[in-house]
């Protein structure tokens, strides 16, 4: 054998060698808030890059609002309110909430898909805050909710919707939708950290999303419903968001419903953000 290997005991000290104690002393016990924020923004940057390179991720927030607005308005307008124009103030805020929910469902599915990839092993091995890989993509998703709400309103305008709330009212409605979408996305992110595969996230999320969106006041006035269904619709958080959006866009008023909607959003975040981080840690 030509290779002569040095036994470790008498290994020549390599340059720039520090004692183990010195090396360990250079570490910090935890991420500071500033570090956590900067890591989250770096993960958000990654998510926007990913979006730009996979434009099909925008299908649900572009095609769905246009399609749903036209479809439900023409389909139900006559029957519900006598005419399409009269139905628009009722249905546009409803579709807004519906689209935001669909968009945040994708957040959970994509997180799950992402977590299967090798790069997540690296994220886990880095000394980064455990919430950053979850919160980062969600910040990038704000863009998706904004696109979805703007397009829904645009489709409404094209069909003759003239919201009484004016520009400010509509902008406030869009902001509320974005906040609602972002909050509810934490629930789907949690599902994303728990489920075994992206398909199962999709399935579970559908099961949550359909009752929540359709069994709400998004498409119909509550007083047309049988008592048992009306009871559910009234406690459904989506109903709060829909009513609050209507108040903002159609009345230009910040009503108690807006307050309740924001409170519901805060509650969803407070419950599901910690659960999501726990779920993500469990994968370690």
């Amino acid at each position: 054998m030509t290779m002569q290997l040095t036994p470790p005991a008498i290994a020549v000290a390599p340059p720039r060698r520090l004692s183990a104690g010195d090396i360990a002393a250079r570490t910090t016990p935890r991420n500071s808030l500033a570090e956590t924020l900067s890591q989250t923004m770096a993960m958000a940057w990654r998510a926007t890059k990913k979006m730009r390179r996979n434009p099909e991720q925008f299908f649900d927030v572009t095609i769905q609002p246009l399609l749903f607005t036209a479809m439900f308005a023409y389909l139900l307008g006559g029957g519900m309110s006598g005419s399409v124009e009269a139905y628009l103030p009722l249905v546009i805020p409803g579709i807004l909430a519906q689209t935001a929910l669909t968009a945040c469902m994708a957040t959970g599915v994509q997180l799950r898909e992402d977590m299967e990839k090798g790069v997540f092993d690296r994220f886990k091995s880095l000394p980064m805050a455990r919430i950053a890989p979850l919160a980062g993509p969600m910040i990038a998703d704000l863009l998706r909710y904004a696109i979805a709400s703007a397009l829904t309103f645009a489709a409404g305008f094209a069909m003759g919707y003239r919201p009484e709330g004016g520009v400010l009212g509509v902008l406030a409605a869009i902001v509320l939708t974005v906040i609602a979408g972002w909050s509810l996305a934490w629930a789907f992110t949690w599902v994303g950290t728990l489920a075994r595969s992206a398909q199962s996230v999709q399935g579970i999320s559908m099961m949550i999303m359909f009752p929540l969106t359709f069994m709400s006041n998004a498409l119909v006035p509550v007083d047309t419903l049988p008592g048992w269904l009306a009871a559910f619709v009234k406690v459904n958080p989506v109903s709060y968001i829909v009513t609050a959006t209507r108040d903002l866009a159609n009345l230009g008023q910040i009503t108690a419903h807006v307050g309740w909607a924001l409170l519901a959003c805060a509650a969803v975040i407070l419950i599901f953000a910690p659960l999501s981080v726990l779920g993500y840690r469990r994968h370690l």
Partner: peptide, 17 residues
């Protein structure tokens, strides 16, 4: 958290994005 600051891990399958 301290442990992770001391390590570089290169996996069997490339863990890059």
């Amino acid at each position: 958290h301290r442990t992770r600051q001391l390590l570089g891990v290169t996996g069997q399958y490339a863990s890059v994005d």
